Amino acid sequence: MIKPDERRNVHEYILLDMAVKSLQNDYDKLGNLKMSKVYIEIVDVLLKVIRPDYYNKKRMLAKQKIEVVKWIHIDQYFSDVVVKNPGEDVVLRYAKQALKTQVENLIFQYLKEISDSTNTI
């Protein structure tokens, strides 16, 4: 059984993981754009800000002996995430579109924080 606060931490970790992977994947494709230097700089800054939070969340879960083991593709709408925790494995079902929207909102939140911190200087 996974506790509600542990489940929330797992969910936050999943969002951070997806944000990092999406940004890294997009980073490789930015070189083909006319304004690639601008976009690459934005993604670089985002990754520098998001990665520490990602690694901290991963370390926190490891201390609680919780690990995201694998993703299982169900269909075009849903995926299951297998989470290993002390005692048993738990399967969490996620709607893909909802996750995508939450990751986008997370990235926008980081962009706003970056923008706010640079405007106060």
Rank of each mutant, 00 (worst) to 15 (best):
residue 46 L to H: 04
residue 53 D to Q: 13
residue 94 Y to T: 03
residue 114 I to F: 06
residue 61 L to G: 06
residue 14 I to W: 00
residue 24 Q to M: 14
residue 50 I to R: 09
residue 56 N to E: 12
residue 27 Y to A: 04
residue 39 Y to S: 02
residue 64 Q to T: 02
residue 87 G to V: 05
residue 82 V to C: 05
residue 84 K to T: 03
residue 110 Y to R: 12
residue 96 K to N: 15
residue 71 W to Y: 12
residue 45 V to F: 06
residue 99 L to N: 04
residue 102 Q to F: 00
residue 39 Y to A: 01
residue 96 K to A: 06
residue 71 W to S: 09
residue 44 D to I: 08
residue 31 G to Y: 10
residue 5 D to V: 06
residue 39 Y to E: 02
residue 79 S to A: 10
residue 63 K to P: 14
residue 113 E to A: 08
residue 40 I to V: 11
residue 86 P to Q: 03
residue 72 I to E: 13
residue 39 Y to W: 14
residue 57 K to A: 12
residue 75 D to H: 14
residue 117 S to Y: 06
residue 81 V to G: 07
residue 48 K to F: 09
residue 81 V to Q: 05
residue 101 T to H: 07
residue 36 S to G: 14
residue 68 V to C: 13
residue 75 D to L: 13
residue 15 L to M: 13
residue 80 D to Y: 11
residue 66 I to K: 06
residue 102 Q to V: 01
residue 70 K to M: 08
residue 55 Y to C: 08
residue 42 I to P: 07
residue 32 N to Q: 13
residue 40 I to Q: 03
residue 66 I to E: 02
residue 53 D to I: 09
residue 69 V to G: 09
residue 110 Y to P: 04
residue 90 V to Q: 10
residue 70 K to C: 08
residue 52 P to W: 03
residue 83 V to S: 11
residue 74 I to P: 15
residue 52 P to V: 04
residue 52 P to I: 11
residue 34 K to P: 15
residue 100 K to L: 13
residue 94 Y to E: 02
residue 74 I to L: 13
residue 110 Y to S: 05
residue 6 E to F: 07
residue 30 L to H: 06
residue 56 N to K: 15
residue 18 M to Q: 10
